[in-house]
Computed example of a mutant assay.
Amino acid sequence: MEPETREELLSAAERYAETVPIAVDLDAVEWECSDRAVRRAGACLYDRRAARVTIRLTWDAYRSFGWDEFTGTIRHELVHAWEFQRFGESGHGPRFAEKARELDAPRHCRSFADARLRLVCSSCDWDARRFRASKAVKRPERRRCGNCGARYRVEHVESGRRWRTHAGYLVARRKLGNDW
């Protein structure tokens, strides 16, 4: 039976972690559920002073993926926990990739939400997705294309509204109102 509440998800994740063949001290792992994340299905945080790891699972990602796919996210976060406990650091480099392969865990978890905003270069094919109004979204005139260095525009994906300046951002924000 698939978890139906956040508490059930955390309990199921803890039980599932016990079955994953990785040398992680699960007694030193805390489990949390996030309702805020819009891109990350999970996160692994390390408190070096307390030698504690916190695995934060995203409720909306679980609801989007379902339990079978979400177990990959749990294995992914356990690889981070293993790296933190063993090496004091973690990333998505070769060591992570090798251990993830051993566990059939994704090296990168797919996004579970569509980006609200898009940065689009005026000169080349570069674009970048944004979920929140970052500095690049609010003040695009201060940034350049990540590929060729040209200026770019920002697009609100759902409405198609576009802007190239902070003033344009403010107008779009005001006109979109609750549809932002």
Rank of each mutant, 00 (worst) to 15 (best):
G42M: 04
G146A: 11
H76K: 04
R86V: 06
G66M: 08
G177Q: 08
T73D: 03
F96Y: 14
H92T: 10
E30H: 13
C33M: 09
A37C: 04
E158L: 08
R129N: 11
I74N: 00
C124D: 15
E4L: 12
H92W: 05
D27A: 09
A41D: 07
A172Q: 10
H92G: 03
S134W: 13
E155D: 10
H92S: 02
A167H: 11
M1V: 10
R132I: 11
F96L: 02
K135E: 13
A41K: 01
Q85W: 09
E2N: 12
R40E: 12
R56G: 01
G66E: 11
P140M: 05
R161W: 13
R153W: 12
F84H: 14
E158M: 02
F131R: 00
S159W: 05
R95K: 09
C121W: 01
L45E: 14
R173P: 02
I55M: 07
M1I: 05
I22S: 02
D127C: 11
E83I: 01
E2T: 06
R63A: 11
H108N: 13
R162G: 08
C44L: 05
D127F: 11
H92Y: 06
D68N: 10
D179Y: 05
I74Q: 01
N178C: 00
Y169P: 09
A81V: 05
H76N: 09
A113M: 11
V79E: 10
G146R: 01
R132A: 04
R143W: 15
K138I: 04
E18Y: 03
R56W: 01
R107K: 11
R86E: 14
E77T: 02
R153M: 08
V157S: 03
T54P: 09
F84N: 12
C124A: 08
L103W: 03
R39C: 01
E98N: 03
G66P: 08
S159H: 11
K175T: 13
V20Q: 06
V24C: 08
C33I: 12
Q85V: 12
E18W: 03
E32R: 15
L117C: 03
E14P: 00
V38N: 12
A13P: 09
P3H: 03
E158I: 00
A115Q: 04
R101M: 07
A136H: 05
E102W: 11
A41G: 15
R39T: 10
V38A: 02
C145I: 06
A167P: 00
L10K: 08
T73A: 08
D125A: 15
A13N: 07
A50T: 14
L57R: 10
Y169K: 06
L103D: 12
G168E: 05
R132N: 10
A41I: 02
R36C: 00
R86W: 13
R151P: 07
S123G: 10
R110S: 09
V154I: 07
R174P: 00
R56E: 15
